[in-house]
Amino acid sequence: MPMLTLILLMIGLGIYGMATSRHLIKSVIFLNVLEASVILFFLRLFTSDPGAVPILNGNNGAYVDPLPQALMITAIVIGASVTALTLMMSIKLYHQYGTLDWKTLLEVEDRQ
């Protein structure tokens, strides 16, 4: 299953990047990669192969399961909100401390 391999790789990449990146913006980017992998996972693995878009059009074809798509639009909107809030926080951190490095920020936090 090549799609499952790709999704596993993306999940691993997201976790690795979030664990190792020292720049705040990079952490946000890898958080988005992780989120995209989860969305791909839901959309791909819950769909049957010969499936049409779940919009009734008269002829009785095989439709794709509409439930994961409805759940994933929720996930996308929440992900956009979280990303916006995180980016605004990093902008304010940069204005305050002049750096976005995790280690430096933690040292500054310790000193105060």
Binding site: A80, L85, K92, Q96, Y97, G98
Partner: peptide, 25 residues
């Protein structure tokens, strides 16, 4: 959730900077 996030962004842009700036290390 979107409303709370937008309100948070609006709040954060109006937050004044503290005096003890440490720009440029």
């Amino acid at each position: 959730i979107l409303l709370i996030s937008a309100a948070g962004v609006l709040y954060m842009t109006r937050l004044p900077l503290k005096d003890k700036t440490m720009k440029g290390g």
